[in-house]
Nucleic acid binder design. Structure first.
Length: 284
DNA sequence: CGTGCCCCCTGTCAGC
DNA sequence: TGCTGACAGGGGGCAC
């Protein structure tokens, strides 16, 4: 569920509470969230301190430092229902209902990974594996590597529907189903139009639409439909600004025609039949 | 290789 | 008041 704006919001909320904190105790309640045995995970992490807190696509990246110079990074993918919550020692909120991994910190605070569906993953990466992993992802859509010309060249080689292409993290890192649909609406492109059928003009529109939608959503602290929360446990407010996602049958904000829901690639897509005509050899 | 399909798992909600 | 099926912000594995 959480996409780039949600990950960015969580990261911003974690920076100050985690800076310099040392992990004193680790509890792994659901080992299937890790890709290594809990023992080795605990052995490596215990005693390390948090440094830079960042993000790659929709993954949270927490640098940790120990005795050696090697930065081991905690890479957290939240899957559909994951939360990474920071609770101070005197926090009054009730404890999360589905804790998966708990990390006690040297100031008495706790970093809790919560995930009812357990689609999320927590991985510890040494510098080498982090680099390899990061290189397997596409450019950051809000970074300098994401340009209209690069987007255009990549799309020209693809026969995949645009919505599917945008969800592929090896093409662009951080766009998920909500913002893919929203960006396609803003650029007037049908979700099932194939990459190679997008004219150059529309490539520029898509490039800027992706950026606009992601920035808007970050400003709103992300979209809470049900599970997503910030590191502080708050909801994001972008749901009320969504133009098409989840709005089947409701009027298009531009022309008033009813928004259409379709399913392909196993996931729902939403579009306006008038504002987003199918290009290429489609049936619509 | 690129693409598409199935599956992982739990919770919630609509309909009967 | 149940029960059943559909559906949910993701992504890894596999067949073609």
């Amino acid at each position: 569920m959480p996409e780039l704006p949600e990950a960015e919001t969580i990261v911003r909320g974690l920076r100050s509470p985690l800076r310099g904190r040392i992990v004193t105790q680790l509890e792994v309640l659901f080992p299937d969230l890790l890709d290594e045995p809990p023992r080795s995970f605990q052995r490596v992490l215990r005693g390390r301190s948090f440094g830079r807190v960042g993000r790659r696509g929709k993954n949270l990246v927490l640098d940790t430092h120990g005795e050696s110079e090697e930065v081991h990074r905690l890479v957290v993918n939240l899957g559909m229902s994951g939360r990474l919550l920071y609770r101070a020692i005197d926090a009054k909120e009730p404890p999360p209902t589905h804790p998966g991994v708990r990390m006690r910190l040297d100031n008495g605070g706790t970093l809790i990974y919560h995930d009812p569906r357990r689609f999320g993953r927590i991985r510890l990466m040494a510098p080498r594996s982090y680099l390899a992993w990061s290189r397997s992802l596409g450019p950051e859509p809000l970074g300098v590597g994401f340009t209209p010309s690069r987007l255009g060249r990549a799309l020209a080689r693809s026969s995949a529907p645009l919505r599917s292409w945008l969800l592929d993290q090896s093409k662009v890192a951080g766009v998920g189903n909500i913002y893919a649909n929203e960006a396609l609406f803003l650029s007037g492109l049908h979700p099932e139009t194939r990459g190679r059928d997008v004219p150059a003009r529309r490539v520029t529109a898509l490039h800027s639409s992706v950026r606009i939608v992601l920035r808007e959503a970050i400003r709103a602290r992300g979209t809470t439909l049900r599970d997503y929360r910030t590191a502080e446990g708050w909801e994001g407010s972008y749901a009320v600004e969504l133009r098409v996602y989840g709005r089947e049958g409701l009027p298009c904000p531009v022309c008033g025609k009813a928004i259409v829901r379709s399913v392909f690639g196993g996931r729902s897509a939403f579009h306006c039949p008038d504002c987003q005509p199918m290009l290429g050899g489609g049936t619509e």
